[in-house]
Nucleic acid binder design. Structure first.
Lengths: 343, 343
DNA sequence: CGTTCTACGTATACCGTTCTACGTCAAGAA
DNA sequence: TTCTTGACGTAGAACGGTATACGTAGAACG
């Protein structure tokens, strides 16, 4: 009988036997390696097709590549990451790479465990989206596996690539837009950082942009930053508290869209009109912003482009590039009803 | 020098050397296998910790397990899948299994490629959520790898487990609720099936429930099923066409929530009041339904429970169970403003 | 006291690829 | 002819674990 693997899997040996060549020759065909005649290649290809052979990634990983790329996303609820992944898939659909996702739930221990797991599985490269871990840990990982970071700002001397939009600029656009619309009591509703306030995190950059633009607009005294976790319950409670307080803001700038949706909901519950009593602005311009019942002003950083570029950089880096590259997209404000100018 | 792997990785040999035991002994400790004294176990554990050893999944996979579970989800935009994954993670957080996700974008070729890829990577088991492929293909895969299906109805004689809610019942609840509220022209807005109309697909079951309940309510003549793809543009165009037609429906039942959100948006654009002019109901009861600006009536099938049960079944099946199990949740209607009774 | 368990470790084949080193053959150069 | 050279193939050692078969020592038993 032909040499089968467990589960009756077709092995490279069987293909070699069928084609009447050596195992090494089959391997060469598989990898498009040097030193195979067209004739032999054709013969091997035919046998592979006939037998339905598929190389075992685990075995390949022991010496060569696994043709697997790992992606870490912070959570599954934020649709922005879906946009990024759409771009990634566009870039990768013609390659033989397979992409697998891990979800960290925005928890630092999970992030590390996940990346370690990806390294353990001999992935060829990883793309890490908006992590919370400090930069020297990222460097540690990047030393062991080709790495691209998205939504994480470089600080110089990286051994990995980054892809971002100019978050500070984006936040400035928001604040300028609100001030121009007649809003003054503008609150920045930030992601919870647990006091880390990493320079690399997008929320930090956005806060910097917010502060700078408030200052520039003569509203330094009105600067107010509030943090909230990602759970619906807590966001609503924080926002409710904010909107019921004595000095209620007249505009809330949320670090990401889905927080903005929660704000709209609370405003609705409290019978506040948007934008009459309160303007709301988000970030990322995900598809929810466009729904008429939300009509949420937001910053477009074109997740698709980010994902596409990140995938490109990752492939290059796997290919051997060592110098870091940092791709930056210019953000663009998309104005909608939620922040229309005051009467 | 100690025997290191590539990238200077610590190998099992090095651990064995450091602990002064055989490689086999270390492997046993790793797998909690039979025949190791507490003393030896402790010594090996200490060496592993000291050296920061991590077993290489690819190497383990060649003979044993990879401790990796694969999950296929149809798309990243539908938040329902996030709920399922939350339940999965709850069930798995105390185990040593690592979960990795693949996204099929609801395309059948992608589904197959993805599952093959997971098998190639020697995953210990897979969980497939709401696939479009016919049941005999599922059976094929299930013969090669422990498999659990979620949101895919069994037809008898399975070699895999399933986890579902009673979709037909859920749809009946919706229609009964709408009829009781005084609605008569009820349209079912279904997922595009490309004419496949697989008995296994949830949308088919929901349609069956819709038809049955319409019939039972004496509204057989009003039955009307419309299909739309998942792209925002097409959904909006289909809905707009529907709402501008001569015989405008007074209620739309959407096969999943995010379609419902699009319907609300179009209604808003057309200045139709909800539920005055049009009632809207979704399915899955994702968090968006609860937002005040949506207030979308929906069917709760508790994704968390589904995910939890599916994970449990998968672990059991990996453990060796052969008989199929089919877990079914009873759906529950959550009424909100979008389908309030007519005046 | 010899025999038989049982508990614990070790030696080693094996998993399915990749990759290095080497052999062979034909064509061209000297 | 003889020697190079390059193109093509092959043999076999890795890769880092797992699992099986076996050895050994001490305890229990008759």
């Amino acid at each position: 009988m032909a040499p089968r693997g467990k589960n009756g899997r077709v092995t490279i040996k069987e293909v070699a036997g069928d084609a009447g060549v050596s195992v090494a020759a089959v391997s060469k065909v598989l990898r498009d390696a040097y030193g195979v005649s067209d004739q032999l290649r054709a013969r091997v290809r035919a046998s592979m097709a006939k037998l339905g052979y598929r190389p075992l990634a685990a075995a390949r990983g022991m010496r060569g590549q696994t043709y697997t790329l790992g992606f870490m996303i912070p959570d599954l609820h934020n649709p922005f990451f879906a946009d990024i992944m759409a771009g990634v898939n566009t870039a990768l659909e013609r390659t033989q790479y397979q992409t697998l996702l891990g979800v960290s739930d925005s928890a630092e221990p999970n992030e590390k465990a996940l990346i370690e797991a990806m390294i353990d599985r001999q992935m060829d490269g990883i793309m890490v989206i908006g992590p919370r871990m400090p930069i020297d840990e990222v460097r540690d990982f990047a030393a062991r596996i080709p790495t691209v970071l998205v939504a994480y700002h470089p600080g110089g001397g990286e051994n990995f690539d980054t892809v971002n939009n100019d978050d500070q600029r984006g936040a400035e656009l928001v604040v300028q837009h609100l001030i121009a619309g007649g809003y003054r009591q503008i609150v920045y509703l930030s992601q919870q950082t647990h006091g880390a306030n990493l320079a690399a995190m997008v929320t930090t950059r956005r806060e910097a942009g917010y502060r700078a633009a408030m200052q520039a607009g003569g509203l330094a005294r009105n600067i107010r930053v509030v943090e909230a976790t990602q759970t619906s319950r807590e966001i609503q409670s924080v926002v409710r508290h904010l909107l019921e307080s004595r000095n209620r803001p007249d505009a809330i700038f949320c670090w990401t869209d889905f927080i903005g949706l929660e704000v709209l909901s609370v405003a609705h519950d409290l019978n506040l009109s948007v934008p009459g009593d309160l303007a709301v602005v988000g970030y990322d311009n995900t598809w929810h912003c466009d729904l008429a019942q939300n009509a949420l002003t937001s910053i477009d950083q074109s997740g698709q482009v980010l994902g596409l570029q990140a995938a490109r950089l990752l492939i290059e880096r796997i290919g051997g590039r060592e110098q870091p590259e940092h791709f930056v997209v210019t953000p663009r404000l998309v104005a909608r009803a939620s922040s229309a100018p005051r009467a």
